[in-house]
Each structure stands twice: as structure tokens, then as C-alpha cells.
Write a protein that binds this DNA or RNA. Structure first.
Lengths: 215, 215
DNA sequence: TAGATTGTTAATCGATTAACAATC
DNA sequence: TAGATTGTTAATCGATTAACAATC
């Protein structure tokens, strides 16, 4: 694992979960969502099957999560579901800012997929005075100069970069110093965030390069 | 490493590169792009500094890549740059299909970021007869029934899913059986591709969940 | 109790890194 | 040659997994 992958999150007073462990959580959740009321308990074998991992791995993951099952019985479906949702931060809606009100930013603002998954667009920013003041979806385009202030005061805690390549790094740094918790970068350039900054940062352009590797 | 992460690519007659190794390549490339003509050689220390990794890690990565430097001197900048670009499949333009000509699909079709990074939109599909035939960007919306045929005949080798949650899994399976090499999923739902299928698949909705974890 | 399944130990596997001989 | 830097070995680290005692 490189530094980036090794980046860990330490909830206060809780065990450290590896990035690999966290990445399996949504796969467990998928089965739990399907089961719902149909079944009160689920075994590590069933979860493993659904997630495509080893049953021992499931038991270790849930144990690391501090969630315990009952020997001979399994894990309580509803409780486990809530526990994982809380862990992933999807037990409540998240406020996201879109930076860049161009072609892509505007489309993302109206994209129902984010909303369906619990991400609400709280703000959209641009530097162009022509765009500032316009209504995009539910929100009015704000001058990009306010990004730092708005982030620091909690208007949003997640940001989507939909800016030109030339501004991406600068905006990312501004967001980081204002304390944003996550950045999803759609700009066609790699953006570097230091490893010691507690931001989970997914660089789409890098992903595309990696993607293309498998072609 | 879960199964998903452990998925490896085996170029014919070439060493196997781990996903972790591949993920560092774009970071090396970034420095090499910056250097260009300014410097003929680069050391593992410089690459390590730029990529935020250990110098020994750099040397091992390049060695695994089959690229060798000169002791006491370093690595040839231009040659290394070409070698990595070839490895990542970004030494040539890639043809991508967008599935779904709705709000998001249309925006992505016109998004210059893809084009700038070497991804050309070769086709856009939809099932709605109202949308089929319309011009979106450079291409005319085609009936989704042709996806399998067009992929199999090489019209594109990468796909972007911009469909509703309900169709995402079905479309992904169709693309996989037609032999697509990469899928980038923008649908607001997780899509499962078996581990033994040689598709590099980045599930944006899963990433979003992981993202939110760090908030 | 008998069967099932967890939780944890110890073994295994793979990736990272320190160290240094090779050599430009 | 003297200094620099690679390429590789061996040590280390961390994550996965087989196995099984604990226990419902």
C-alpha cells in the first residue's frame, strides 16, 4: 500500500479501520439492504458470499467495527445495517458544494443521483460575474471568493471540483485549508492533497488513467 | 487487500504489476510531464519526493515495469515518460461510449475534460425513442439495443454509465459480455462485476460512500 | 445436548522499506 | 578515482485466511 492507500481514519476512542476494511462495508450493506425484514440475522458466510470476500475477513471486519454477533446464530441484520451506515456517514444527509458552474457543474447540480444517495447541493460557486447570481437547480451561483468562509462556517462539508484544469489545484488547497472533509475531483487534471491532511480525496482523472490501464 | 483490489493485469509476456504499483504511475508521470526538456535524467529520490512515496518503492516499481536506469545517474526522463504512458494506455486516444442521454449523460458528452485526457466520445445511447436520433455533442443518440453489437465490433472500448439506478446492473452486464474494457459508473447505485472478469470498474456511488466516511 | 457460527489465534501472503553491493 | 545512484536482498510490516476453541 502506498501512502495514499494507507491513509486511515481514527474515530475518537475507536479502533482504526483500514481503507480496505472500509471499502468492504458498502458491499456488506448491499446485502443488508436487500434482506431488510426478511431475515433477522445474517451469517458471516452469507455476507462473505454477497461481498465476494472470505468469511473470516467478514468476521474480522465486523469485530474491528466493534460490532459483535451471536455464536451459533449470526449478526442482527437491522443493527448491523445501522452500524455500518453510521460508520460510512450515510446515516444523515451530507451537504455538498459544487465549485464551477459551467457545463459539468450545472449538470451535476441537477443530477438526482447525488440527492438519492443523501448528498444535497448546498452551494455552487463560480468566478465569472456572468454566472454569479444565476439560479442553478435549487441554489444561486455564489462568487468563488466566498468558498473558504462558507466551508469554515459549515455551509457544506464536501466539495465537487468542476473547474478548469488550471484552477483545480488552487481551489483544492483553499478547500483543504477551510476544513472540507471530502473532495471529488472532476477537473481534467490530477490534484495533490498532502497525505497528512484528513481529507479523503478521489481524483477522477487519475482513476481514468488507471481505468484505461485495463484496456 | 480484498479481491477487488487484488485484481491484477497481466500484459502478455510481462511481469504482473500490482494495483498499488499502477496507482503510483500517474504520480510519477506528473513530475515527468513537468520536467519535460528541462532535465535529461531524474533520480528515484526526486520521483519519490514528487509522488510522496519511498525512493526504494520507486526503484522497485520501475524495475517491475521493466524500465531500468543508470547507476550513479538516474532514469531517462523522456523514455520513462513514454514507457509509463504506454503502460497506462494513454499513449493513444481511447473511444468511450456514454450510456444514457439524460441530464448527466448529455453533460458528460460535452465535457471537454474527457477529450483533453484522450477520451473521445464515440457513441451515446438511450432507450427513449424521443432521445434517439438527437444530436448530442458530436454524435447522434443511438438506440441502446445496439450497445452489444457496437462494443463487440470495436466502436468503443470504454463505457460511462449515466443511466437510472434500475438499469445500471443490466447495462453493465451487457457491456461486460460484449467485451468492454472499462466501466465508469455514474448511476446512483452500486454495480457488481465479477472479479474474474478483466474489467476495471470504478463504482462512483461506492466511492461516494467511502468518501463520506472521512467526514 | 447437537449443530451452528462467532471471535481470535497463528500461519500465510504480499507489499514496503532499509541497507548495501554493484557500477556508472 | 570519488561521488552518486541504481537494483536487489533481506527484514519488516500489515492484511488475509485457515483453523478451532468458545459458546449460543
Amino acid at each position: 500500500m502506498g501512502n495514499q492507500e494507507a491513509q486511515l481514519y481514527r474515530p475518537p476512542g475507536m479502533r482504526v479501520l483500514s481503507r480496505a476494511t472500509v471499502s468492504r462495508m458498502p458491499r456488506y450493506l448491499r446485502l443488508l439492504d436487500d434482506i431488510r425484514e426478511a431475515q433477522a440475522t445474517v451469517s458471516s458466510d452469507e455476507l462473505a458470499e454477497a461481498a465476494g470476500v472470505n468469511p473470516a475477513n467478514v468476521r474480522r471486519d465486523l469485530s474491528d467495527l466493534g460490532f459483535h454477533g451471536t455464536r451459533g446464530v449470526g449478526y442482527a441484520v437491522g443493527d448491523l445495517r445501522s452500524r455500518i451506515q453510521r460508520e460510512l456517514g450515510i446515516d444523515h444527509r451530507r451537504k455538498v458544494a459544487i465549485v464551477g458552474a459551467g457545463n459539468l457543474g450545472t449538470a451535476l447540480a441537477g443530477y438526482s443521483g447525488f440527492r438519492q444517495r443523501g448528498f444535497d447541493v448546498a452551494a455552487i460557486y463560480d468566478i465569472s460575474s456572468e454566472r454569479v447570481g444565476r439560479l442553478v437547480g435549487d441554489v444561486i451561483v455564489t462568487d468563488a471568493g466566498r468558498i473558504g468562509h462558507d466551508c469554515a462556517t459549515g455551509l457544506f462539508d464536501m466539495a465537487i471540483l468542476a473547474v478548469p484544469a488550471t484552477s483545480a489545484q488552487r481551489v483544492a488547497e483553499e478547500l483543504v485549508s477551510a476544513g472540507v472533509s471530502s473532495i471529488l475531483n472532476f477537473a481534467p487534471v490530477r490534484v495533490i492533497v498532502p497525505n497528512d491532511v484528513p481529507v479523503r480525496h478521489v481524483d477522477l482523472s487519475t482513476e481514468l488513467q488507471i481505468l484505461s490501464y485495463y484496456g
